[in-house]
Design a protein around this nucleic acid. Structure first.
Length: 516
DNA sequence: AAAAAAT
């Protein structure tokens, strides 16, 4: 089977040939002929299976007839993250090089002006994340009743991210005479319901699960002490040990703050690292990703924003600095290496408290993962002894505890707690090799203070900080999460009686305001 | 224990 058997137009075929492809992947071979006939498709496939081309190529062929009208895009592709949306745009540019198509990318974090202009000109292809798309529509700049083909990509991830209501709204704005191409890696009940509602007699195309496809990736678990400095040291040793084989690597952390902390620590140790997480300035996000793709950065420290779908063809190593909480994320993360049949290596740093997550991962992939250098029973306890798990008082808020960890990492300590932590007090406070310089500590604290202010600011108050952030050029070192007072996480904190960061020292007046 | 997405 070759691409020329699928019924694609000569223009598309020639671009595919130029890109160096001759053989379609199973999902492409299964979906393209039906998509060209105008049928609805239900594609069950992970990324890395050639899924994107399975809708881009037939869409290009079908778009050769007709023209776009102002503010009435002819096709719409919905993606869960900004980076994925940008990646789909690149695919349209690559395979559409023989076409004269207007492509518009509507994503958040960048200015409206350019997006408006492209809509006004009439877009053949509109690629969007749901939030910004709805925003444009509400501003009256966008009419969706001319859409002939709708693509919903990564539907299960959209579900995880709470986008399904948005997706339903958008689907209802588009004429039911459209063709719908629907892709999901898994089919949870909510997704099945969605397909029953929005697909008409779909052709179902299913390809093998990524969990079983990862045989070309060497996977190892690496024991570590549980303190941040233990884990960072474990990681650095691992990176050095792998240096000869390592072309480039993505290092995954579970939290955004960890991404920026680890990133800064690695810079201090002269590793050629970048960072990527969703609270970074959009320009910095794009820049980091582009630099990593182009080989200007050897290491990319990232949150799960980079776990799925991102196509960086030649990642040699994946390091999990944290064991992912959800087992499926493990599969997605390690799937960033070993792409296109290449071999890859993944190392997952594990501490004692990670055992149950490791069990879940091993159950999911149906295999035991080998330990790199002895299992957790051989971990040497770090200075200051064991673990921090049971020591904290029952009534003490757990989240405040995390702040304490940050502080310890800088060699600081809350005076109040000193008596409760004798064992750690025995350790000299200044020996951390990667203790941040004082200036950085201060900057971080200012950020935290501002975040607290944000937390108590009323919903209606206009926020100017994000505007400022948009203007600002991305600085290489500035990866600290940009606290956004309107994010759901913020609300969750407000729901709690405890304002994060104050411990028991929170002034009473703040407690009242924070509850509002 | 999280992350992602509009302002």
């Amino acid at each position: 089977m070759t691409f020329s058997d699928l019924g694609l137009s000569p223009k598309v075929l020639s671009a595919v040939t130029d890109a160096g492809y001759t053989q379609p992947t199973p999902i492409q071979a299964g979906a393209i002929p039906h998509a060209l006939l105008g049928k609805d498709i239900l594609g069950i496939a992970q990324t890395g299976t050639g899924k994107t081309a399975s809708f881009v190529l037939p869409m290009l062929t079908r778009l050769e007839k007709g023209r776009a009208r102002a503010r009435m895009p002819r096709t719409l592709i919905l993606e869960p993250t900004r980076e994925l949306a940008a990646q789909v745009e690149e695919n349209f540019i690559r395979y559409g090089k023989n076409h004269k198509l207007n492509i518009a990318l509507l994503i958040g974090g960048v200015s409206f002006d350019e997006q408006d202009k492209k809509l006004e000109r009439g877009a053949d292809v509109l690629i969007a994340t749901p939030g910004r798309l709805l925003d444009h529509r509400e501003r009256g700049k966008l009419l969706l009743n001319g859409v002939e083909i709708l693509v919903i990509d990564e539907a299960d991830r959209m579900l995880d991210m709470g986008f399904i209501p948005d997706i339903e709204r958008i689907c209802e704005m588009i004429p039911f005479t459209r063709q719908t191409l629907f892709f999901s890696a898994t089919m949870p009940p909510e997704i099945t319901k969605l397909t029953e509602k929005f697909l008409h007699a779909p052709v179902r195309v299913e390809v093998s699960k990524a969990a079983s496809a990862a045989t070309n990736i060497i996977q190892r678990l690496v024991k570590s002490g549980s303190k941040p400095w233990d884990k960072r040291e474990t990681l650095r040793n691992l990176m050095k040990a792998e240096d000869a084989e390592l072309k480039n690597a993505i290092i995954f952390c579970n939290r955004k703050v960890e991404v920026s902390e680890l990133f800064r620590s690695l810079l201090k140790y002269d590793f050629d690292a970048g960072a990527l997480h969703g609270d970074m300035d959009q320009r910095a996000r794009m820049q980091m990703l582009a630099n990593f793709r182009d080989g200007k950065l050897r290491y990319l420290v990232a949150s799960d924003v980079a776990a799925r779908g991102l196509d960086i063809p030649d990642v040699s190593h994946v390091f999990n600095y944290d064991v992912p909480i959800h087992a499926e994320d493990y599969v997605h993360r390690i799937g960033r290496t070993g792409r296109a049949g290449r071999s890859g290596k993944s190392f997952t740093i594990a501490t004692k408290s990670d055992t149950k997550y490791i069990d879940a991962i091993e159950r999911l992939i149906g295999n035991k993962i080998e330990w790199h250098d002895g299992d957790l029973s051989t971990v040497v306890a770090s200075e200051g002894g064991e673990d921090d798990a049971p020591r904290r008082g029952k009534g003490a808020p757990r989240r405040a505890g995390r702040k304490d960890d940050d502080r310890k990492d800088r060699g600081e300590r809350k005076p109040r707690e000193r008596h409760a932590r004798h064992s750690e007090d025995a350790a000299p406070a200044t020996v951390r090799e990667d203790q941040p310089v004082v200036a950085e500590v201060e900057v971080a604290d200012i950020g935290e203070r501002r975040a607290r202010k944000d937390a108590i600011r009323s919903e209606n108050t206009e926020r100017k900080s994000s505007d400022r952030n948009e203007q600002r050029a991305p600085e290489r070192g500035d990866t600290r999460p940009q606290r956004d007072s309107n994010r759901p996480a913020r609300h969750r904190q407000e729901d709690n009686d405890t304002t994060v960061g104050f411990g028991d020292d929170m002034p009473a007046f703040m407690r009242i305001v924070a509850k509002v």
